[in-house]
Design a protein around this nucleic acid. Structure first.
Lengths: 324, 324
DNA sequence: GCACTCCTTGCACGTTTGTTCATTTGGAAT
DNA sequence: ATTCCAAATGAACAAACGTGCAAGGAGTGC
């Protein structure tokens, strides 16, 4: 739970490091390592698990640049984003897909984040899944900033959102910047007022300077509604309004139409999420999508140029490319 | 043997990539992967081995900056080099040590070498060991350049040295620049003349601009003489000369004394290796040492400031730090 | 000092993985 | 078409590995 290793842990870390060397660099068996370190093989097994889980051992997969799958190449060509298809068995359930994609992204995320960087984080079921698996990586002077508020009529949302944030913060040893506001204001004027508060504008400035943004997609009118659409954030009147405006999805509770436009959608004036112009200023914008019901939403987000790096499961990738 | 993947291999590579994803990112068992890919588990096992061996899967060990061992910290403080101690069982034989250190260095070497870079390579038993294990990494427009000639009275040395070079070149997809000259000239004047040849001076220029140099250490008057001292490169008279000059070791067949000085050692005028000034101009200079008999030589090389990154086994590290 | 909890250890078991071997497959040469 | 060879495959076995469990220790509170 501490951000740096206790002195108590450092011996364990030292051991884990040697064990990892012997195992992964010199291909010794755990048995042999156990003898060298004068302990049992089981302990070494556990030590190595620890080394992997704590990011001491870092396993990466580097596709030679000419090897991306057809799907990935095609998406890259058509939408100018760097696409990464997560292989998922055809028969997998939607939750299964989400977990798998979340796990994969969690393992890879460290490549995008380093010392002295700021990462913006949304919330939602996708983000929650990722957060549950993030592999630690030691960074300095870095921060995680919440992109949009999570409060609603029933709760402040702080517990939920901050749990997600905390997991990222812990894993990277980063400072966490919470955004304790409702997801949607009742009155746009309140938002305007609050946005002028120094405490809030400080946060907005941090958002404006972030190096990486990580978010999932919302998809309002699909069979499996996303967190925002089921969690008591919106009222029936809001739904009607979204429907009338032709909204196909959202990123961090900012809505957009099929062509990627976000103008003239009344709800956006009350949303706590970052304007797309802010997002587009961010160098890396990683979008994670799982479940083909989000294809329409994804098309919109791509049209809006919100995405630089896209992670999706195989089915969704196919859905994205298929006509219609 | 080809530098780029045949189209024929690319399907295999594609499969290896998916398998690696499923195995290392999603923690599936090989059995599960076999079912998804409609093949036997054995094939997946082989596929994953291939993925590791061919550098598709890259396993790194990243010590948190506060975790280097006492030995490493101490070496860093005393000699201003980044030290990496390779753990080796106390009872290990000298060959065993060499293999282990070689394997470890081979696995991490990729971290130092990338596209558009030039790496200078020496030869000798240490380099040979490393070369036998280098893990592939795809690079573009990079080259490997031989640091010193390998010819002697009996052979041109080309077969031996070029085998080492070739292994590095193959692994990195790099262009190999051979240096087909004797290790030592009989007559300094011949060297001078040859050095003015355009074919040779072209190579010397490449050496002068290299980004990384990788070398072992020679150690003349120790129980276990290095390759240079046993391979018929030197005559008895040369030994006497070295002894009289107070030589303690060599880097790429350039000799130095305990204080790191290389001046006034007659043999150096006839050596094909790079002057130390050339070496010192190279940003990264990786030295690999195994076996405590090389401690004296190592002290000299450190005094000469030939090293920026040092890899050695535990025993040698201890020997280096112990007084005397 | 005693009881309590929490964490670590090594054993034993079942699972997962590497490897050998006999067999098949897909080409190339004849 | 036939033969040949090399590479790839899956079954079967042996080795290596992960994990539940009970025992042992270290620390804490009473």
């Amino acid at each position: 739970m501490t951000l740096v290793d206790d002195p108590i842990h450092s011996e364990r870390t030292r051991d884990a490091l040697t064990a990892a060397h012997l195992y992964y660099m010199q291909d010794l068996t755990m048995d042999a390592i156990a003898q060298e370190l004068h302990t049992s093989r089981s302990s070494i097994s556990r030590l190595l698990s620890h080394a992997r889980a704590s990011g001491l051992v870092d396993i990466q997969i580097r596709s030679p640049l000419d090897a991306p799958s057809l799907l990935e190449k095609e998406i890259q060509n058509r939408f100018q984003v760097s696409a990464h298809v997560v292989p998922v068995p055809d028969g997998a359930s939607d939750v299964d897909r989400l977990e798998r994609v979340g796990l994969s992204v969690a393992r890879i995320l460290g490549q995008y984040f380093d010392s002295n960087m700021t990462m913006g984080i949304a919330w939602g079921s996708t983000m929650s899944a990722i957060s549950r698996y993030v592999t630690p990586k030691q960074t300095h002077n870095s921060q995680i900033v919440q992109l949009n508020g999570a409060g609603n009529m029933r709760t402040t949302g702080i517990a939920y959102a901050s749990e997600i944030l905390r997991r990222f913060g812990d894993a990277y040893g980063a400072h966490v910047q919470q955004f304790p506001v409702p997801a949607f204001f009742d009155d746009p004027a309140t938002k305007q007022a609050l946005w002028r508060e120094r405490s809030v504008s400080r946060l907005l400035e941090i958002q404006g300077r972030m190096d990486v943004a990580l978010f999932g997609l919302g998809s309002p009118f699909s069979e499996v509604p996303s967190h925002v659409y089921a969690g008591g954030y919106l009222e029936p009147a809001d739904y009607d309004s979204l429907s009338r405006s032709g909204v196909v999805g959202d990123v961090a509770t900012v809505f957009f139409r099929a062509d990627g436009q976000a103008d003239g959608i009344p709800l956006n004036d009350r949303s706590s999420g970052p304007e797309f112009s802010v997002l587009r200023r961010t160098p890396r914008r990683i979008c994670v999508v799982s479940g083909s019901s989000k294809v329409k939403s994804l098309r919109g987000a791509l049209a809006a140029e919100l995405i630089t790096d896209l992670y999706l499961d195989e089915g969704t990738a196919r859905g994205l490319l298929s006509a219609d």
